[in-house]
Design a protein around this nucleic acid. Structure first.
Lengths: 198, 198
DNA sequence: GCGACATTTGACAACCACTGCCATATCGCA
DNA sequence: TGCGATATGGCAGTGGTTGTCAAATGTCGC
């Protein structure tokens, strides 16, 4: 049940990585809509049918990369001390998430560029974002043991919106700035509306 | 250049409305994915090709309804007194937008239900939302004559996020509550972080 | 009302994302 | 080495979407 290291598994990993690389390269060269699945698979010498065994859809190649991050975020919020005010907990969790973004800055920025020019990608990326919001909402609601989710949802939505603007401006600047400070500034600004000690 | 009232135009309006009605009905009956464009057009006795002359995509039938609202919102923000703090201006504009939502509560709620169960719709709806964010950001940036749009964007993103949560909970409650107060409460909560007179 | 003109529609063909199905190839293990 | 599990390829089919062209239909001046 651990990380399988059979020949089979490694081969699968490699194929997946090759497909992702080829796809990103072609998307960058000629655009997402102008790249067919056929184009991608012939670079890796794999059948189209196989492509769809690795990815649910063409967009999934771009989105998939972010897939588990939401769950990770969820975990990070859960791990915060229970007496911490909710917005602050979210802020701290997002702070940790930043590390992952910086590690894979190239892919994050490429995805963002694609999102700008391709509605289909943008839409999927936003959808993933919405899923994150739901997860965070759940965790926050549990933490404060309320049945009415409106408060937690507002915090999740607003916090993630602030996070996204920071990541967005980081991407447009080419990832040169310090994402930590950008995110933290944006969230600090918003936090003043919540978690007031009053 | 005004509202054309020729037979031609009226017929087009009617066809569009019939297609929309048929589509919403079928989507509700058997779901979005299970309804083909063919199914829709045969109810209105129109060719599939014609369907795509009225709508850019199948999803567009659901989204199209909201299309101009973003521009309307933009106009409403522009119309606010220039000395008003930005978040407050946005809050006021969203307050007016609420009227439109309440008028067409049935469609708004139907769209929301479809969004919940159909990823494709959800994604498109979110994309429209993102476009609104851009428009609002632009207007706010103009108002305060800044070149760095990070501040305006944060306000737009956060304000719209708050707005969406309110609309969301209104929809899940079946549109029974007063949307005005829901929206206003959510925005008031967030506003404390911005526009402070300090 | 009639005819030239513009616009809308329908039919057909094509492209492409995506899926189910079955035969074949490949890997892991006894 | 050979058996069972799994990965792949090929193929046919569905459905969304678009271009093209010809037929139909509204518009407008006369």
């Amino acid at each position: 049940m651990d990380t399988n290291v059979g020949l089979r598994e490694r081969k699968k990993e490699r194929t997946r990585a090759e497909l992702t690389d080829a796809a990103f390269r072609l998307f960058e060269e000629r655009g997402f809509d102008e790249t067919t699945v056929e184009d991608i698979v012939e670079q890796v010498e794999v059948s189209p049918r196989t492509f769809f065994r690795y990815f649910d859809s063409k967009e999934d190649v771009v989105i998939g990369f972010f897939d588990d991050l939401g769950l990770e975020l969820r975990g990070m919020v859960e791990a915060r001390p229970p007496d911490e005010p909710p917005f602050r907990a979210l802020r701290a969790a997002l702070g940790s998430l930043v590390d992952v973004y910086e590690e894979r800055a190239d892919r994050v920025i490429a995805a963002k560029r694609l999102a700008l020019e391709t509605p289909a990608i943008r839409a999927r990326l936003l959808d993933k974002h919405a899923r994150w919001e739901n997860w965070v909402t759940e965790v926050l609601a549990e933490r404060q043991g309320t049945d009415d989710d409106r408060g937690p949802r507002l915090i999740a939505a607003v916090g993630l919106a602030a996070y996204s603007t920071a990541v967005g401006s980081w991407c447009t600047k080419g990832g040169k700035q310090d994402l930590h400070s950008l995110v933290d500034e944006a969230l600090a600004e918003v936090e003043r509306g919540f978690d007031r000690p009053t």
